[in-house]
Computed example of a mutant assay.
Amino acid sequence: MSFGESYFYSLHYQVPSALLELEPNIQLISEDFTDVDLSFSGLIWFHLAPGATIAAQTATIRKCLPHGKLVIMSDLPSDLEALAAFSIMAKAYCNTHSGMSVLANVASVVLQGGIWIGEAIMHRLLENQVPAQDIAKVVNTKWDNILTTREREVAVMVANGLPNRVIAEKMSITERTVKAHVGAVLEKLGLKSRLQLALLVKES
Rank of each mutant, 00 (worst) to 15 (best):
K192V: 08
R194H: 13
L38C: 07
L76W: 03
Y13Q: 15
Y7C: 11
V15N: 08
T174V: 04
A18V: 03
W45N: 09
S101W: 00
A184H: 14
S87F: 06
I29M: 10
D134E: 12
L162P: 01
A132H: 08
V166F: 00
A184Q: 14
A82D: 02
A104I: 03
V106M: 06
L48N: 06
A168D: 11
A90V: 03
V15R: 09
K142W: 10
D134V: 07
N145L: 15
N140M: 14
G190Y: 12
E187V: 08
D32N: 14
H12T: 15
G68D: 06
T177D: 09
K170I: 05
F46R: 07
R62G: 00
F86D: 15
N145G: 05
V138D: 06
R176A: 14
L28I: 13
S87L: 09
K91F: 00
V110W: 01
V109L: 00
S193Q: 12
A49R: 11
G161T: 08
Q129R: 10
P163G: 06
G42M: 07
L197F: 05
N140F: 14
I146P: 00
A55P: 00
H47I: 00
A85D: 04
D134K: 13
Q14W: 03
E151Q: 15
F33T: 06
K170A: 11
A18I: 03
E187H: 12
S204D: 13
M171S: 03
I26H: 07
L147F: 06
L199Q: 13
T174H: 05
T96G: 01
E151M: 01
L195W: 14
S108D: 14
A168T: 08
S2H: 03
V156E: 12
P24C: 02
A90W: 04
C64M: 12
V36C: 07
T58D: 04
V139I: 11
T149M: 04
A159Q: 02
L70Y: 09
H12Q: 15
Q196W: 07
T149N: 11
E127N: 04
L65N: 13
V138Y: 01
A56Q: 12
G51E: 13
N95P: 00
I88L: 10
Q129C: 02
I167P: 03
L197P: 06
R194W: 06
A104H: 08
G113D: 00
I121Y: 01
L197S: 03
